[in-house]
Structures are given as C-alpha cells and as structure tokens.
Design a protein around this nucleic acid. Sequence first.
DNA 1: TAAAATATCATCCCAACGGGTGATTTTCTA
DNA 2: TAGAAAATCACCCGTTGGGATGATATTTTA
Lengths: 205, 205
Amino acid sequence: MSKIKILIVEDEPLIAEDIRELLEQVNYQIVGVAYNKEEAYSLLNITKPDIALLDINLGDNTDGILIAETINEKYNIPFLYLTSYSSKLILDKVKHTFPMGYIVKPFDEANLFTAVEIALSNFQGIKKTVSFTIENINKTLPNKLTQREFEILSDIYNGLSNSDIAEKNFVSLNTIKTHVQKVYEKLDAHTRSATIVKVRELLNK
Amino acid sequence: MSKIKILIVEDEPLIAEDIRELLEQVNYQIVGVAYNKEEAYSLLNITKPDIALLDINLGDNTDGILIAETINEKYNIPFLYLTSYSSKLILDKVKHTFPMGYIVKPFDEANLFTAVEIALSNFQGIKKTVSFTIENINKTLPNKLTQREFEILSDIYNGLSNSDIAEKNFVSLNTIKTHVQKVYEKLDAHTRSATIVKVRELLNK
DNA sequence: TAAAATATCATCCCAACGGGTGATTTTCTA
DNA sequence: TAGAAAATCACCCGTTGGGATGATATTTTA
C-alpha cells in the first residue's frame, strides 16, 4: 500500500517544515507545501493529495477558507484546518466548509496524527451524494442528454406523468413521449421506475 | 438559545472535573459525568445531551467504543473521543464508530472547544439518510404496511414490474396487483413513480 | 450559409398499470 | 377456538406507458 499523500498549506516556512517532519516520522508522504492560494491550487492539481492541511490565514487574508471551498467543489478529498485561531468568530466563518478537523496551534504529534487518521477514515465512510445536475448525469453516460432531455428526466425523477410534463411545458403529449424515448435510450432504462432507480444509482455511487 | 448540553464519560474524577471546568468556562452545560458504561446509558436517556465526550478506557476495558456504537444505533448525537491513547492499533479499533473527533490527552481548552464546535456543526450538516426498513417507513404512516406489503414496496422502489415481482415470489400477477393497490392506498400514491418519490422523501427528510 | 443536432408533433399498436369488486385460504391473536 | 387480519387469486375496464417509424420546424455549429 502506498503512503498517504498530504498537502500542507501554510505560509510560515518554519511551521510548515515542523509539520512535515512530524508527519514524515509517522510514515506519511508530504507531496507539497503551498505558501499561498495559487500554489495550493496548483499543487492540488499536480500532486493529487489524499488530504490537505490548511492554515486559515495566509499572508493577511483568510484564504484557507477559499481553498477549502474549492476543495469541496472540485476535489474529492478531506481537509483539516491547522491554525492559530480558535475564536468563535473564526469558527463560525469556517463551519460551512465542513472541515474533517480543526487543530489549534501549537499542536502535538499525537493530535495531528489522530486527526489525519480519523479524517481519512470518516471521509471514506461518508456516503457521498452527487447533486442532481446535467453535468453529473452526463458524466457517466456514453450518449449525453440534451438540456431538454435532462429536464424531462428530472420530471420523471420527481414522479410526474407524461401528460403532467406536457402541460407543464406547453407542448404536446407526443413530444414528451419522444423525449422520454430518447432519455430511455440514453440511460438504457425502459420504464419510469427503472429510470428513477438508474438516476439514484448514478447519484449515490 | 439554550446552552449546548454535554455528557462526559470519564472514569477519572479529576480529569472529568478538569474537562467540566474547561467547558463550563466557555458556556457549555455539562449535564452529567458517567464513570462507567451503565451510567453513560442511563445519563444518555435521562439528560438527552447534544454531544458526548467519551474516554475509550473505562476501568480496564475499552467500553468507550461500546458506548459509541450504542450512540450510533440509538441516539442521534455526535461524540468525540477524549482519551490518552493514540496508537494506530486503538485508532483502527475505533474508526468504525465514526467519531466526529479524537482528542489526545493532555489537551488544551482551544482544541477541545474547537472540536466540540466543529463536531456539532458538521453533524448538523450531514444529511441523515434513514435506512430503508419497514420500521422507518411505517413510522410516518397512519396505516401501517404489513411485512408482505413492505416487500412489494421494496421491489417497486427497486424498479421491478408487477410481473417481475410475481415471478420472484411464485405467486400470481393478480396477487401482486392487489398488494400494490394496498401499498398505494397506504402511501397515498397512485403510480409507481409517485411511490418511489414518496419513499425517497420519507428516507431523506 | 449549409449541415448537423435538437425540438417539435403525429399515428399505430400492444403491453403494463391502476382501480373496482368480490372471493377463498392461511395466519395471527384475543 | 372463534373472529380478525393478512395473503392469495380472479375478472373487468379504461388509462398510461413504451416501442417503432416518419415528418417538419428550429437552433447550433462547423
């Protein structure tokens, strides 16, 4: 089994090296140290870490929070905050990013180690539900749905009948039936129920 | 807003009092200190805490883990481990309980405070999906499903046609149709798709 | 601007679904 | 053990859904 790859985002070189040493001692692989937001994005792309440790304050901005938001949107990895600030104010500002941990400096090796281990383990355990968007659906399909077809799929997913959908869109029932046929074809499902199940599987896996 | 209610499970009275002081300083309410497993269960029932802090080793057993398992099964609250042990061995033993945090003693106020805050916040943020069982479905229904009807509902939920279900159960198609009618009646849905949507709503809310 | 993709609509056919009613057997329970 | 509840099955009927095929307008894009 290869080592766990960790990205450190920390603008104080001394602290960064301190963290690196602690973590390398316990057999993690530090794939990079980013000193600012741009470096963080670059290293996220290049090194594909398994987990990120984020200082909240980089320079004099709270850029760590922005990085966290980006990780939540585009990368599928857990992260910890590792920072000097523990005020209620700061905490309330970071809560919406759902960090897998929050460690206040100065910290010791044991707490850092356990936080990383628990974060990785819990993140695996969380069932990740993808949101119901045309991008997420199409990602898995050989023949992509058109925008219109996705709208019809959405209506099917929400239990509407063909005539419901026709009325809602001010088009004829036959038109909807044609769209539905295309949707079935592209999803490789041949009933409404099977279609809903298929969508559920796409979103929950 | 009333104070956050915290249950401490810790067999060392001195440490327990230490924790209590730290937390009461930052305006949490300690609703009880349990010195063993039985007290913990009792206090969980009586005091209805919002979060629990668990020592893993109570006496010379790892009863903290059992308490965590019980919390996961029967109580809908987050918990943190707060313990002296940070070995990989122990960690691997607790991971399956999905703690919202793991703090190694000795700890400082800042880390304890942030861990509690993040735990409570993240726990709120996690979309709790109820598992698809007859109990969970019936909980919300005025007219309860029978076991058989629940099985048919389950098949519908998984996209099976009436004849699929009939074959699977070695009964006639008409029998299934009758069951399906009862299911529709009890769920107040009148198509397969509407039924699936209804179940989804019951499970995700 | 011409070709391709998409959206619109139609007709035919048959299978599946949904609703109603009534009945018998099996199982549970007071 | 008698009555209630649940599971089984049947027949009828109208609606909706699903598959096939073909056609015309509209929009996108090379």
